[in-house]
Computed example of a mutant assay.
Amino acid sequence: MMIDIGMGSVQVGECDVMGHMNVRHYVSRALEALDWLGLELGLGPSYTREHGATLAPADQHIRFVRELPAGTPFSIHGGVVHRRGNTLRLYQEIRNAATGAVAATIVTDAALADASTGAPRPLLPDIAAATARLKVSVPDYAAPRGLRFDPPHDALSLEQAVELGLSLMHKGSVQLAECNEHGLMRADGVISRIWDGVPNSPARGVRQQSQPIGKIGSAALEYRLVYHRPVRAGDLLTVRSGLKAVGSKTTTWAHWLFNGQSGAAVAVAEAVGIAFDLTTRKAVSMEDEVRRALEEFVVPSLSA
């Protein structure tokens, strides 16, 4: 059975231009809850202070089920799905505390990592008892739909991304506010950089030309995030993105984050998104003309 690992309410500063909590803050709040789950596993703050290691996400699948507007109270619940070697598969769900409805589900493959360097550490030998006590199953409504969640492909290099024609969406440098106390960027910084770059997509204008200004927005339905290597405060980051597929209502993107100096991939995300009516708060079907125009942007064989 899942245990309570988080509680709070959505703040105005956590909401985006669409009027609901931004994807970054779903991840940020889930990370806070992961710390409480770590405590139940014997990996709480005292363990981190003594041994310099903490649980860190390596691979995540997220489904966004319902919106959370400003002021909404929420609770977070979770447990351990299974252990594979030094990796724990963890399950979390964020619920609207006023209605009990599930707002988001997060399945995370996490490992013990050095809090200062991000280097992997072995799990505690006696963690089996705690994982058994926290055993849960991933419910059907949290299973992948538009995205896979099997082992990731090899990482692209920046050179390969350029050769594939992936669009430059973002350039920046990592700030201390995005990092833990040791200067390593938190996982929510990855999705934050992606979302910051989305308006720069050359495909964005295709949908905007056919939609009434101020009446149509966009939202993420599903994300898969793979964290390839640690990122430190001061590192340069660049994001290059490509369109994978176009459906009747959805678009599927792959976003690659690279170290701007070395060109090495630090993370990748795949995302399924929709356009939705800002008045009815429902998904909007794509016009045939728009779909055909978007299909021109599809990059064949693009994957994470």
Rank of each mutant, 00 (worst) to 15 (best):
residue 192 S to R: 14
residue 41 L to R: 03
residue 169 M to D: 14
residue 83 R to V: 03
residue 126 D to C: 08
residue 243 L to R: 01
residue 84 R to C: 02
residue 243 L to V: 00
residue 141 Y to D: 04
residue 167 S to L: 07
residue 244 K to S: 07
residue 65 V to R: 05
residue 40 E to I: 06
residue 16 D to Y: 04
residue 134 L to A: 00
residue 37 L to S: 05
residue 193 R to V: 12
residue 55 L to N: 03
residue 166 L to D: 07
residue 118 G to W: 13
residue 206 V to E: 10
residue 38 G to K: 09
residue 81 V to R: 09
residue 133 R to T: 10
residue 66 R to S: 14
residue 163 E to I: 14
residue 115 A to K: 08
residue 104 A to S: 12
residue 173 S to W: 10
residue 151 P to N: 07
residue 95 R to E: 03
residue 36 W to Q: 01
residue 155 A to D: 05
residue 254 A to W: 02
residue 144 P to N: 01
residue 235 D to A: 04
residue 304 A to D: 11
residue 248 S to C: 00
residue 17 V to A: 09
residue 240 R to N: 06
residue 81 V to P: 03
residue 200 N to K: 11
residue 143 A to I: 00
residue 267 A to Q: 10
residue 170 H to F: 15
residue 203 A to F: 01
residue 261 Q to C: 13
residue 91 Y to G: 04
residue 94 I to W: 02
residue 101 A to C: 06
residue 12 V to K: 05
residue 156 L to H: 13
residue 145 R to P: 01
residue 174 V to D: 11
residue 226 V to S: 02
residue 263 G to C: 14
residue 119 A to H: 13
residue 37 L to N: 09
residue 114 D to H: 02
residue 42 G to D: 01
residue 230 P to L: 07
residue 244 K to M: 15
residue 267 A to Y: 07
residue 197 G to D: 00
residue 144 P to K: 07
residue 162 V to C: 06
